[in-house]
Amino acid sequence: MKFSIGGPLKLAFRPWVEGLENIPAEGPAILASNHLSFSDSFFLPAVLDRKVTFIAKAEYFTTPGIKGRMTAAFFKGVGQLPVDRSGARGAGEAAIKSGIEVLERGELFGIYPEGTRSPDGRLYRGKPGGLARVALATGAPVIPVAMIDTEKIQPPGKVVPKLMRPGIRIGEPLDFSRYQGMEGDRFVLRAVTDEVMYEIMKLSGQEYVDVYATAAKRQIQEAAKAEKEAAKDLARAQKAEAQKAEAEKAEAEKAAAEKLEAE
């Protein structure tokens, strides 16, 4: 990562970073970050001296063809692990297992508590099943991280990224050892997750929305679909009205012509 991608990224985008001293020089730690852009998993490792392992969709590693092999090599090169997300519960368990294995090796594990990218730049409710369970199962400290402006570099639909300086704020480690052995308590998992999200909110300055990002995305998609259908209905109505007006005009002209003939 450092030699193949990190260097060029830092040179091209010059990301600024605050709080590097909060990353331990050695030993396991969980980096819990907000998620604004596809590039978050690249910029954060680029500014650190230690390797960070994230999880990624298994499809990135199994797509056939030359492009698929290049994509797989790229994600392996940036330290991402494949996780099969074909089943919601299975995906969660696989992610938790992967995170625990990374931390047991004394490494850094990166995770996005929101579970998916923010659809509108706001900070959404964290999912308690992954972050909190990994933290309580391993005892590793949780370090809140805020990515700043990464969503502006390559907005949806834009192929060429915009050259600008994103930012990264790294907060102080959070210790949840007081909850050790309580990873089966859903109220504890919720409390741990909410505490982490609060720290991320303070670092990022984002507006917090107390719903899951997946639900917000679904609402946005449904609203966009409804708007599209409404536009289609309007277009059809306008077309029908135009056709009716044209038919009435033609009928009027025909009647006028017939009248002239009769005279």
Rank of each mutant, 00 (worst) to 15 (best):
G205R: 01
G139Y: 13
E207D: 10
P113W: 06
R69I: 09
N22Q: 05
S86A: 14
E114Q: 10
K244N: 10
K97Q: 13
M70W: 15
A230W: 04
L103C: 07
W16P: 10
P24V: 05
G77D: 10
V188P: 15
V78F: 00
P45E: 06
D194L: 15
V192F: 05
A46W: 01
D120W: 00
G106Y: 04
G106A: 01
G92S: 04
E195P: 04
N22P: 06
R165N: 15
T193I: 01
A215P: 00
S4I: 10
A235E: 15
R50T: 10
L189M: 07
Q154E: 02
V196N: 08
L48W: 02
H35E: 02
K162Q: 15
P141F: 07
V192E: 14
P156M: 13
F38K: 00
G129A: 15
S39T: 05
R85K: 14
E227M: 07
E229P: 12
V196H: 03
F42K: 01
T150Q: 06
G92V: 11
G171C: 13
W16Y: 12
A32I: 08
E151M: 04
K239T: 09
K162P: 15
R50N: 06
F43A: 13
F75G: 05
R89N: 07
A256Y: 08
K254I: 07
A242D: 15
R117E: 14
G130W: 04
A237D: 13
F54Y: 15
S37Y: 00
A257H: 11
F54W: 02
I200L: 10
E199V: 06
E229A: 13
S98C: 08
